[in-house]
């Protein structure tokens, strides 16, 4: 798009959080927080329990009121956007949970089409086609006819990711997606996050309790420290012995591990 004077005024696609203050009521948990989420990359949000990761997450997503600051989505004020428009750009993956009713997986994923289906209308054949496509892409097409409440935690987490992708968003927020998963599924999930960013061009944000996920996904990291401080940068920049001690109060060694095909960095807690 060109401005009247011919100068380029193209909006760079980006979700920017500026000077955000989040908390409950008058209690501010985290203040003056800034982050940019760029399509095609992964942002890992790390930090000890109680520093406000979840609160920050929900505030950015507009699920609870922000106490100050702004969120802009491709140049627009995201906090004033109708939920429907916001949901077409930003999807949220909650932690795997139990649903109150025994929906088929297909119907759970179809709910992700809500922002594309009129208020008084119901999903059509095209919507269900998108549902099947998303399930196939994630390699869980065979779950479509299964009952959601009878799936394992890992399968339920994948279904919730499928539901978010059915929204056809540009940004994907995942709240501790690895917390209920076994060791193998955790690694698969981090790989999936990376693929969604690099192959599908999504801006992926995930919270995690495992700092190694940041090394693995090769993205940027945000390490939230107590007392409203945070660090922003690549894995090598923020995952240092000193920072980890400050964040978690324990001694952590950062080591290079020879995997045979190269060196991988990893955090090793020292007891």
């Amino acid at each position: 798009m060109k401005g009247p004077a011919g100068e380029a005024s193209e909006v760079v696609p980006c979700m920017s959080v500026r000077d955000a203050s989040v908390g409950y009521g008058s209690k501010r948990v985290l203040e003056h927080f800034n982050v940019d989420i760029v399509p095609g990359s992964v942002v890992c949000l790390l930090g000890p329990n109680g520093v406000g990761k979840t609160t920050l997450f929900k505030s950015i997503l507009g699920l609870q009121p922000m106490l100050g600051g702004s969120v802009t989505l491709d140049g627009e004020d995201a906090l004033k956007m109708p939920r429907r428009d916001f949901a077409r750009k930003v999807a949220y993956v909650p932690q795997a949970h139990q649903a109150p009713f025994a929906f088929y997986v297909r119907d759970v994923v179809a709910v992700g089409r809500s922002s594309h289906v009129g208020m008084f209308s119901r999903p059509g054949a095209a919507d269900y086609e998108i549902v099947e496509e998303v399930l196939d892409e994630l390699g869980i097409g065979k779950l479509a006819g299964r009952v959601y409440t009878e799936l394992s935690g890992g399968e339920r987490q994948m279904v919730l990711i499928a539901r978010a992708l059915a929204q056809q968003p540009e940004y994907l927020f995942m709240d501790e997606p690895t917390s209920n998963l076994d060791f193998g599924n955790q690694v698969s999930l981090v790989r999936l996050a990376k693929e969604l960013a690099h192959d599908r061009g999504l801006g992926v944000v995930m919270t995690t309790h495992n700092p190694n996920h940041l090394f693995m996904c090769e993205g940027t990291g945000v390490l939230i420290l107590p007392h409203s401080r945070y660090l922003y940068g690549t894995a090598d920049e923020i995952l240092t012995d000193g920072n980890m001690r400050e964040a978690y109060g324990i001694r952590v060694d950062i080591m290079d591990v020879d995997t045979g095909v190269g060196y991988e960095k990893t955090c090793v807690p020292v007891l």
């Binding site: 997503l61 428009d85 916001f86 992700g112």
Partner: peptide
């Protein structure tokens, strides 16, 4: 699925 999830999927 709860208010937060419904809202995040664009439901008013």
């Amino acid at each position: 699925f709860g208010d937060e999830e419904a809202s995040s999927m664009g439901v008013n």
